[in-house]
Nucleic acid binder design. Structure first.
Lengths: 226, 226
DNA sequence: CACAAATTTCAGGTATTTTTCAGCATTTTT
DNA sequence: AAAAATGCTGAAAAATACCTGAAATTTGTG
């Protein structure tokens, strides 16, 4: 996991960086507002921690312009401002969370973790569970009671999306769009082909069916006995 | 958007519900912890707002058990506890945000919005209820007290139109037009054929008749004992 | 560059859903 | 009472969506 800290108080910044590092979180530190966009676009951060007041461009302005340019990562706003109006401003400029100084590091850490979990960043080294299956996003494997299934990148992408929304039908178009993106023009049949590949691998787990089709709608992940 | 508020202070709960409603957010209100799981599993909420201290099961325990059972919706924890240890506990039991009482509604509202935006799952949870039936527009199923009826796309289209206008007779022409559109030229008998198919499936629910015909006018959805 | 693996397309098959058809039952009109 | 209109029914035909195996293409790697 990697974060960006934009804080002009060098002492506080260094202190935060050190503490995050000690918890195995990489942290880049910058001391002004104008570099935020550059960093955010070139590195994939799980969370941006922005101080409200920064030389160059302040945190709120940076946050707003990032959002306008389509940035979707998680953002926590850090500030001494306590009034309600300020908090509202913080949220409306696109922040996901707002923490008032002085704060304790543990709370910032807890909020950072909570947010990165929720925001689902592309580099999330994570393991999650759905019903009896353990999904490892690093190794692209599913573990069902000791039976390990190795999936390719694409296969895992599809399975992950389905499993994270288990119990709900995901429409064909939604899947196509989420997996391949809107610009790339892919045959709808590719999805069928992948379902075939995935189902075949899942047969390694006998007596269970995971992928269900709802005709003319889409697919749903659900562990069901055959 | 729909939320669930679990708050045993009836006055505060009612107050919050009213305020959320005034911003076009539907809110269900419960005053104890043991019903949370039931509600959360049967209705699809965008955000759960849980008080820490609740009769039955408290908020943290409810939160934890929800997460363990795979619940993925957004959760905000509400509490008077201000110590760091309490906050950490709040986050580690699976909450996405933690707000200390007393708070201002605007901040809760801002955090609710920010969180629902972030948590926003890809599926649209289109579920509605008429009389005893729960209609799931994604999976094309009707749930009557645990009895599940699977309908095809066309069948569901017809049933949905009738059920959403339950108690009113929908004219043949209106149904034909709304289901098949004006351009497609379909035999009026197709509607009869579908009524047959739908009624046959609805027989799975014994002792009830849902679809009534009004001769020379149209059809009406109404739950009636046989 | 060659090789293997992963991704995507293709062409056909199968299953389900949608629609039509032809006949029967019931109600309304003549 | 006969004829006409309306709705119900079961089965068959048509259309659609999905599944499948193999081939073609792309990507990654030494």
């Amino acid at each position: 996991m990697k974060i960006l800290i934009a804080e002009d108080d060098v002492k506080l910044g260094g202190f935060l960086k050190k503490l995050f590092n000690s918890r195995n979180i990489e942290a880049d530190l910058i001391d002004n507002g104008k570099d935020i966009a550059y960093y955010a676009q070139n590195e994939l951060y799980d969370v941006l921690i922005l101080d409200w007041m920064l030389p160059g461009t302040d945190g709120t302005a940076a946050c707003q312009s990032l959002r306008q340019s389509g940035y979707q990562g998680a953002i926590i706003m850090l500030t001494a401002r306590t009034t309600l109006a300020d908090k509202i401003t913080g949220f409306t400029c696109g922040a996901d969370d707002y923490l008032v100084k002085p704060f304790e590091f543990e709370e910032l850490y807890a909020r950072t973790i909570a947010l990165s979990r929720r925001a689902g960043s592309p580099f999330k080294h994570e393991v999650f569970q759905v019903a009896g299956c353990t999904f490892d996003c690093n190794s692209h494997t599913i573990d069902f009671k000791g039976t390990i299934i190795r999936l390719t990148a694409r296969e895992f992408q599809i399975v992950e999306l389905l499993a994270r929304n288990h119990g709900h039908v995901l429409e064909r178009d939604l899947l196509l769009d989420r997996i391949w993106g809107s610009e790339k023009d892919i045959t709808s049949n590719s999805l069928d082909a992948y379902m075939r590949l995935i189902r075949k691998k899942l047969e390694k787990i006998p007596g269970k069916i995971f992928i269900h089709n709802v005709r003319s709608v889409g697919y749903r992940w659900e562990e069901e006995d055959v």
